[in-house]
């Protein structure tokens, strides 16, 4: 089985990091994984997206054009990529930042006010992890131990103090 995931939003929202965590979760499960960022001028503050592929077979194209799972963190990304989600796919959107909903009936939308939750819970900048928690729960992607192990791979030792906040944010997303 292959899961094509596309994460999209503004630069600075932690899109690449969230993608990396997904890739490490896949690695913990001995899956084949790839992670591909958009690159170039858009890295300097504009839109940003990241393709992650988790698969039981060698990854073919690392470029996700038709996502099974779309994680949208701003409205332009929602507008751009929502039509590309494959039928039967899942769409995760930060409803705190995106004031529209999908009208498609062939996909499942999970709207979560992750940005609002992040500021309410004192987890600034962690809307990416809250959304990812929701993704992990809805896709039944991994247990807590696997997620923690993956987090440890992603967070360098010098930033170890951020581990707990990230874990908390993921748990918040999972339970909402």
């Amino acid at each position: 089985m292959t899961t094509n995931i596309l994460l999209a939003g503004f630069g600075g929202q932690g899109i690449l990091f969230a993608g990396k965590l997904l890739a490490y979760i896949g690695m913990q499960q001995d899956k084949q994984v790839s992670w591909l960022p958009s690159y170039g001028p858009e890295m300097r503050g504009g839109t940003c997206n990241c393709s992650v592929v988790l698969s039981d077979a060698p990854v073919g194209s690392p470029i996700v054009l038709k996502p099974d799972v779309l994680i949208a963190m701003n409205k332009p990304s929602f507008v751009k990529y929502e039509p590309a989600v494959v039928p039967g796919g899942k769409l995760f959107a930060d409803s705190g930042l995106i004031d529209i909903r999908s009208e498609r009936t062939d996909i499942t939308e999970y709207a979560l006010p992750a940005s609002v939750m992040a500021s309410d819970e004192g987890l600034p900048g962690l809307l990416n992890m809250i959304l990812l928690g929701k993704v992990i729960a809805e896709l039944d992607l991994a247990d807590d131990a696997t997620v923690l192990a993956a987090l440890r791979k992603c967070i360098p030792p010098r930033k170890a103090d951020l581990l707990e906040a990230n874990r908390k944010a993921i748990a918040l997303g999972k339970s909402s």
Partner: peptide, 10 residues
């Protein structure tokens, strides 16, 4: 190419 340069894999 740019895909292989930028992408991450294990």
């Amino acid at each position: 190419d740019g895909v292989l340069g930028q992408m991450m894999e294990p």
